[in-house]
Amino acid sequence: MGTNIISNQKFLLGSSVLIILFFSSMGYYFIAGDAIPEVDLLYNEKQELLSPPYSPVEHPPFGTDNFSRDLFFVILTGAKYTLGGALIIALVRLLVSLLIGLVIRIYLGKLKKIIVWSVEAFNYFPAVLLSYFLLSWFLLFEFHFTQSFSLTFNERVIISLVVLIIVSLPTTTVLIINETDRILTFEFIEGVRSLGGRRFHILIKHIIPHLKPQLFVVFIREYIQTLLLMAHLGILNVFIGGSVPKADHFQISRFVSLSNEWSGLIGNWWQFIWTGYPWITFLPVFFFTVSILSAKLALRGVEENMLSVKSSSDSKRDTDIKSIESGSPFHLLKQNESSETEGR
């Protein structure tokens, strides 16, 4: 980690966009308790009725949806669930896989190869399908069959979080194992060992401090992946924030994102791209894009910062390797590969 990550402009800009989105959403929750105003009939200058849903021009800034809800507030209230949920998921993913990875690498070194090999199948098993099948019964089909959910809303949210954490554990754990491997090849580890450093000592005093900056990068990557995965699940009609059937403006019963969580909005609203109200589809897509771009900008900032510190302290060659590694957003999968090739 750089001496001062806050001074990196890219990191600052990227993370502050996310923070502002999240906290304005939280703020609104404490002020108005997630109340979403419904817009009454609107007239144009000639006192003629406009037909809802209103476009962003008729009802700025974002217009209204097929329930006549003000879209600005829909997006605002949903932000905290999407951004906050992804934050929790990415954080727990990181901590759990760190724990498992370190235990495997330090105490079960011989199992390493078997574990790395068995994760191979996940390279051909998309995470979307994995989490879709784990969740679709609880969140979607059970209601279609029995007209009710056997799990409460809170239980459903917890299950969604657990599933989204679990699906990335195999690959993230392998990544941690490989990073630990890399640190263990440093020359000073040899010195520590001959001076009598135990495994636990090496772990606490040497591996974890060296792992820290890398972990931050992994965390932001997991965050981006989680956001994308949530959006994809939304398109497959599995809404993390829960869903309820509700009759809309056109008297059609639809599954509606209960918490206005963005992935649910994407799934609900994609059909509007075919209608005269494409802005309804555009909003959640746009906000997902903004969040992902901001996170990627922050990531780039962190990587630049690491590079600048590294090049001043480490050898040139090491910097090159670093830049290659950090250049790839799919670090974790690539790491998996390279360790295998090294292992042979």
């Binding site: 956001l227 994308l228 398109i235 791209i273 555009f282 897509v285 746009f286 997902f288 894009t289 771009l293």
Partner: peptide, 13 residues
């Protein structure tokens, strides 16, 4: 850096 859903949206629109 753009997500795929954004690209698909733009093309369809």
């Amino acid at each position: 850096a753009l997500p795929d859903i954004f690209v698909i949206f733009v093309v369809q629109y």
